[in-house]
């Protein structure tokens, strides 16, 4: 990473796929320019001086018990109330999954 990597359109298409986004050709053109600028900015991290012992921020926390009733409990009807489509018991998705 000593030199800034130039992002190509092919990489933007790949990132769009990973991000579950469909982009038009115009959006790909425009986002390629944006992402070049943003990643050049992010590349500054290569200049950070770190030493042994710096890797302690993400120290494991004790997780709370996975117990039913810690939060609120909801009926299926409540959980389905925001669904675009449901049959009263389940969320409904398109049948065809290519």
């Amino acid at each position: 990473m000593s030199e800034t990597k130039k992002i190509e359109k092919s990489e933007i298409k790949k990132l769009a796929g990973l991000s579950k986004l469909s982009l038009t050709d115009a959006e790909i053109d425009s986002l390629t320019g944006d992402m070049r600028s943003i990643i050049a900015f992010a590349d500054k991290i290569s200049g950070a001086a770190i030493s042994v012992g710096d890797d302690d921020y993400g120290a494991a926390r004790e997780l709370r018990a996975d117990t039913v009733g810690v939060g609120e409990c909801f009926t299926p009807g409540v959980l389905l109330s925001n669904a675009p489509t449901d049959d009263g018991a389940y969320f409904i998705l398109p049948r065809k999954c290519p």
């Binding site: 991290i45 950070a48 001086a49 770190i50």
Partner: peptide, 14 residues
Amino acid sequence: AYYKKAQLTRGAMR
């Protein structure tokens, strides 16, 4: 190069 380095730098800043 990015995520791990940033986490390490976060620890140093803290």
